[in-house]
Design a protein around this nucleic acid. Structure first.
Length: 434
RNA sequence: GCUGCGGUGGUCUAGAGGUUAUGACGGUGGGUUGUGGUCCCGCCAACCCGGGUUCAAUUCCCGGCCGCGGCCCCA
């Protein structure tokens, strides 16, 4: 026997229906926010990702050589490919561009629940509009997705790398030391910060900054602390503006935490950074992350920096929704996942099927989903089959019906029946009126 | 990378050093050649893999693989 490769999953009809419903929902929200869907290849030149994230990521990639000895890799994320796509057009696109995307990504790492070697990301980027309003739009879009998906109890964490840069820069940190300090801050490792040689008063101040917990109102306290450290931060004003815009745009997270020590551990973030967390997934609780970043300098298009975007952990959101639905007894995990058109199971019975197929064809042409019984079996078994398919209606077409020109439509949920003329129009009409 | 727990038909599960390896769900066929979901009967289908201990291992031991949790990491 052959087993699935580790960290991969199969999706049967029920699960796939749910995933498609969620993808459609994401696209609908994206459309309302003015995003246009784009797609990039599943594999790319290896250099694209090493340039973005350093050579050390190679061991987490599904990298390989092609027959011409080119270094390629399955994509581990979608931001760099989208940047590459725009760069290939020399940035000659209408700006600002609002792109959304969805697709599988691949990372070679230990798999566990909520972390797979093949996983799906839904995401977006706004390119060519480096403003705090852009940031607000991006975060509002992310919030809209999780909210419309019906996720409960999620938390939005927002920080600003620019503010951290101002503070740490004022302490004389730069280059690697600054990056290290930022990573320590992100982890909340203040002992490590003190050990790295940062002035103890500054560490204390950073710690109280990290302990601020709340929404926009915490900015005032943050400003006090930052001012007391002798730092003028324009970035702080930008963050305040962004948060106000976010609120005006209707984002309404169950919990909002303005946490200036959120750094997302990534070198290329430059401004606002954010993440959306849920409790249900333990250590894999981050379902979305993003912010403002500079990457176009890698392609020689510095003028497009910074951009703003996010990646949404498609699988994780679904997992969290499934756990929450289970807990609350909700039957629908993704809103609308069960609301398909009413399918009609057509059961030819003791007739030459060619007599039925024209009718089936007419029904389908008219937009009526038809599931055709393909085996010749007795009525009882065929009805059981119709029921097991999930079809809402069933119709037997036998000699009697052919002769009379009348058929009986049966609603499978409760056995209700209705008769009508044996024509596609009459049948469709009968179904929609039942 | 570290660490804890687990692995019996497709799914859930009983079980014991020697069994025709349990039951349910499911699938399939019949009872029933014009109306399903009930009921009855039949059939399909499993001890994760490799090594060790033993007369005998699916059961005990070790390793691997896979799954689940925790830590590290998470572009």
């Amino acid at each position: 026997m052959f087993e699935r490769a580790r960290g991969t999953r199969d999706f049967g009809p029920a699960e796939m229906g749910r995933r498609l419903a969620f993808e459609r929902m994401c696209d609908e929200v994206a459309f309302r926010y003015g995003f246009q869907r784009v797609a990039t290849p599943t594999f790319e030149r290896l250099e694209l990702f090493t340039a973005k994230s350093g050579a050390s990521i190679t061991d987490q990639l599904y990298a390989f050589k092609d027959r011409s000895d080119r270094d390629l890799t399955l994509r581990p994320e979608l931001t760099a490919p989208v940047m590459r796509m725009i760069a290939e057009q020399k940035g000659q696109i209408p700006k600002p561009a609002r792109y959304s995307y969805f697709g599988p990504c691949f990372r070679y790492e230990e798999s566990k629940r909520g972390r797979y070697r093949e996983f799906w990301q839904y995401g977006c980027e706004i390119i060519g509009a480096p403003t705090s309003l852009t940031e607000a739009e991006v975060v509002a879009f992310a919030c809209a997705i999780v909210e419309e998906a019906g996720l409960e109890g999620w938390q939005l964490n927002i920080g600003h790398v620019g503010i951290l840069n101002d503070i740490l820069g004022n302490l004389g940190l730069e280059g690697d030391a600054l990056g290290d300090a930022m990573r320590l801050l992100d982890k909340g490792d203040f002992a490590g910060l003190a050990a790295s040689g940062i002035d103890s008063t500054a560490v204390t101040n950073l710690q109280s900054l990290a302990q601020l917990n709340g929404g926009i109102e915490t900015l005032a306290s943050a400003r006090e602390i930052i001012t007391s450290m002798g730092v003028e931060s324009e970035a702080l004003d930008q963050l305040e503006e962004m948060l106000n815009n976010l609120s005006s745009l209707g984002a309404n997270p169950p919990t909002l935490v303005v946490d200036l020590t959120v750094a997302r551990g990534l070198d290329y973030y430059t401004g606002m950074v954010f993440e959306i967390m849920v409790d249900e997934l333990g250590g894999e609780g981050q379902v979305c992350g993003g912010g403002s970043y500079k990457l176009f300098h890698l392609f020689g298009l510095d003028d497009l920096d910074p951009c703003c975007g996010f990646g949404l952990g498609f699988d994780r959101v679904l997992l969290a929704l499934e756990i929450q639905a289970e807990k609350s007894g909700r039957s629908e995990v993704v809103p609308g996942e069960n609301s398909g058109a009413s399918t009609l199971a057509v059961i030819p019975f003791k007739v030459d099927v060619s007599q039925v197929l024209a009718l089936v064809s007419g029904l389908r042409a008219g937009g009526q989903p038809v599931l055709l019984e393909l085996r010749e079996r007795n009525i009882g078994k065929s009805m059981a089959w119709a029921n097991s398919t999930g079809a809402q209606f069933a119709m037997v077409v036998g000699p009697r019906d052919i002769e009379s020109g009348q058929v009986t439509i049966k609603r499978l949920s409760d056995g209700a029946e209705a008769n009508c003329e044996m024509s596609a129009e009459a049948i469709s009409q009968t179904i929609s009126s039942m």
